[in-house]
Design a binder for these strands. Structure first.
Lengths: 189, 189
DNA sequence: CCTCCAGTAAACAGATCGGTATAGTCACTG
DNA sequence: CAGTGACTATACCGATCTGTTTACTGGAGG
């Protein structure tokens, strides 16, 4: 990726997330990135492709960030679940103050054949698998149910955070997730 | 509201929800409603105002639907919490297959000064107050916490439903909400 | 030295955007 | 019968949309 292309993706990332995909034109992205439209179309081919790379890059950066936090959390399942929510909390303040970019993008993309679709659903499937894996370590017999519950808490917290439904929903979800984990552990330790 | 205006709002409701607000032009709405653009601007004044009335109507219809279900559920707090999730399940299939319209609209509206903003945040505040009220009946000492947890489960379920993260997330959230309620009740009956 | 490539600058295309203007039809109502 | 309000039909406005085109510049590598 050339320096100009990187600047384009960076500008697109901020504008698409803050204002919405359809509300942002390529002229604005070009101006913001200090680049001509020709450069955008030479590097990305179309706005649609730029949207795809915007979401793919968000996804990749979030996964890398979370992986780092999980590594630092050690092997204990309880600490790792806690780490996921703490990572979301840290991430939300810097990059996700309007909620999950995948959920927001999904609101603007109606066609399931859109090339960005698998990125969106892929991240959600990945998060579910992550939570289910963590649940399996803590309560093997109840992993499926527990993993889904953690997923719901997590998604709900991101929405509540973006819409400011009440203060610190991600911290609240983290505490609730821990309680759920402990309850499942108590039933089959 | 005149018959033509009603047709406009009905068409706008479907199109805005299914395709997104910015992706739908007034010409399309006019064509879909069998109406000229002049009628739209005579009745609504602007696209922005039409968006406001689209969201306000959704909000109103959802609250009325839910109120009916709550009345039918009787006085027991457990049954009433169950009724909220069952109502969401019934509502989602018919009108909400792409997730919560308020959350989706929020993804497209960046300016907090937008006239639709209070409608969006108002519905979320109303839902939180509803859940907190129900929680108070079941476990008075823990109502604040429990109400927030039920809210997170509910929001998470709507997102998971819209993105098809796993089958029947609303039913799952309902069962989880019941368990949460029972646990809180057991601590202080 | 020459070619390739990333990039700028700027004009242009056709479509669509939100919104307005003009003219006229129809039904109801005082 | 005159007036009013809801509505259709159609043309138009300037702005903006995604995307293309042409012409040119500067640096890196063989």
């Amino acid at each position: 990726m050339t320096p100009a292309a990187l600047r384009v993706r960076t500008a697109a990332d901020r504008l698409f997330y803050e204002r919405g995909i359809h509300a942002v034109g390529v002229d604005l992205i070009a101006a913001e990135a200090g680049v001509t439209k020709k450069t955008i179309y030479d590097r990305f081919g179309s706005k649609e492709q730029l949207v795809v790379e915007y979401l793919a890059d968000r996804d990749e950066r979030w996964r890398a960030f979370l992986d780092g936090r999980l590594d630092a959390a050690g092997p204990d399942a309880r600490a790792r679940v806690r780490a996921v929510f703490d990572a979301s909390l840290a991430w939300a303040g810097d990059h996700n103050s309007k909620g999950c970019s995948m959920v927001n993008a999904h609101a603007e993309i109606s066609d399931p054949a859109h090339p960005a679709y698998p990125i969106i659903t892929g991240q959600k499937a990945w998060m579910l698998a992550l939570f289910t894996g963590l649940a399996r370590e803590a309560a093997p017999g109840d992993a499926e149910r527990l993993g889904r519950s953690l997923t719901l808490l997590h998604e709900g917290a991101l929405v509540a955070y973006g819409l400011r439904v009440f203060p610190d929903p991600i911290g609240h979800a983290r505490d609730e997730a821990e309680a759920l984990l402990d309850a499942a552990r108590a039933q089959r330790p």
